[in-house]
């Protein structure tokens, strides 16, 4: 495979997709939130999910690491394959799955623990390290990769909640990275942040793409355009259109996509 293609692979790239979802229908009780969503997620790319509020972006994202299991009346139908294995299969261990598919939430949610313990949380519960030195190294490298280390290296014992909002969000990213997942799901990770912190996170996402597959929900068209290689547009629970980000934003095929990105509704 040519190096050029490696850095800008397209949807029709010959590698198998990381996630492959077919006929995904999600119900909250009687109410159907997603209709027959069929979407492939390419490895080592950033895929952004856009669409008007309530169209099911979060719902779809939360299917990918089975966070919807937590919601009592939620039911998920269809096939969601991660590396070819159905994650809703009986034999799948949710704990294992979530270790492979990490998540960063809309509001930074550091645990009421020290910065160090926040990042060490995942490695500890999964037993990723065998001694203190390894743990320290893993925590530090995660903080470095999340671009937070320089700012907090002198105060790893301070509570995570003492950081600023943008730092907290990067801490949450470090926390997700520390588990060494393959995929990171981000649900509007910048919506609680100011433009500078947002730019910092966007930069970070771009760097992380090298090692992780990233799926990001965003309400900002500019953000989708800046950070993602592929964009999927959802509307009223249906996947309307998916394709290379550039193509979605310049020559959308569907009228609804066109209307949304030009700000005519949503």
């Amino acid at each position: 495979m040519a190096a050029l293609e490696m850095t800008t692979p397209d949807a029709a790239g010959n590698r198998p997709p990381k996630f492959s979802t077919k006929n995904v229908n999600v119900f909250y009780g009687e109410k159907q939130a997603l209709f027959d969503v069929e979407l492939d997620i390419v490895e080592n790319q950033v895929t952004s999910l856009i669409g008007p509020s309530g169209c099911g972006k979060s719902t779809y994202l939360r299917c990918l690491n089975r966070m919807n299991d937590v919601v009592e009346e939620c039911r998920v139908d269809g096939s969601i394959l991660l590396d070819g294995h159905n994650i809703y299969d009986r034999s799948v261990d949710v704990v294992q799955l979530r270790a492979e598919v990490g998540m960063v939430f809309q509001k930074p949610n550091p645990f009421p623990k020290s910065i160090f313990d926040n990042v060490a949380y995942g490695p500890r519960i999964h037993g990723l390290t065998s001694n203190r030195a390894e743990l320290v190294e893993l925590v530090e490298s995660s903080l470095i990769r999340a671009g937070l280390y320089e700012e907090v290296k002198d105060r790893l014992d301070n509570p995570g909640t003492s950081l600023s909002g943008g730092q907290q969000q990067r801490l949450c990213i470090a926390r997700a990275i520390a588990v060494q997942p393959e995929v990171i799901l981000m649900d509007e990770p910048c919506s609680a942040l100011d433009p500078i912190a947002t730019a910092r996170i966007e930069e970070l996402i771009d760097e992380l793409r090298e090692n992780f597959t990233i799926i990001i929900v965003t309400h900002s068209m500019q953000q989708a355009a800046r950070v993602s290689q592929r964009t999927a547009f959802f509307h009223l629970g249906k996947l309307v259109e998916v394709g290379d980000t550039e193509m979605i934003f310049t020559t959308p095929q569907d009228q609804r996509t066109q209307d949304y990105i030009t700000g005519r509704f949503g």
Partner: peptide, 18 residues
């Protein structure tokens, strides 16, 4: 205790009791 904390922990692969 905010739901976001619970989800944060579950999202990292912790079990309910953890």
């Amino acid at each position: 205790v905010p739901k976001s904390l619970r989800e944060g922990s579950l999202g990292l692969g912790a079990t309910k009791s953890e």
